[in-house]
Amino acid sequence: MTNWRWDFVWEILPRLIWATGNTLLAAGGGYAIALVLGLALAVAQRSRHKLSKNILRELVEFIRSTPLVLQIFFIFYVGPQFGVWLSPWTAGMVAIGLHYAAYLSEVYRGGIDSVPKGQWEAATAINLTTTQTYWRIILPQALPPSLAGMGNYLVGIFKDTPMLSVIGVGELMHTANAIGSESYRFLEPYTLVGVIFLAISLPTAALVRLLEASVRRTLGMS
């Protein structure tokens, strides 16, 4: 490791840590959008309205079958032609949110489908509205089986944030590239990016597993 320079590492570390904040912000914002929108997509696909159901089904398929980076470009560069001007930050979070909403809607759908039909019937028998049935009866039971998938996509979103560098969002990858082109040293910045990603992904995955167990316990379902 003759090439490795520790002094350079200490020099660029503050910038990379600052960029990590941006990465976490982009991942968090995108995930928040995906969580809410994915639920809306999942519930809407269970509605009795055939046409809207099919349109949503196709939309989800379309999003899942095209690359995220294309969607990022589309929202950022093609959006303005239709009068939608978004900052790189907003465009990036919307693209990631939309993309992962499609995936999360499938996770939710699986969770909702795993709740026995008798639960819906019991909810009808005590006269709950459809909204009450979802929030109070169905979704709490759909949550534990969905948590593993939700956790996977949280880590997935985090790992996909480097794609936002293509539209100039100052996250980790973008910053590492910038450092590289300024100093002509790529080994340290890219290695550090890898280490930072690893240092966040692994504990997150472990936390999700703990959360899953604790939710099951809280709901009395373990």
Binding site: P116, G118, Q119, E121, A122, T124, A125, I126, N127, T129, I137, P140, Q141, L219, G220, M221
Partner: peptide
């Protein structure tokens, strides 16, 4: 339907209690 359902209660073969509630 909602107004009329209030007059009727039902018990099921497989109980269908809400498992996440006491």
């Amino acid at each position: 339907l909602r107004r009329m359902r209030a007059k009727i209660g039902m018990c099921f073969q497989h109980f269908n209690l809400f498992p996440h509630m006491t």
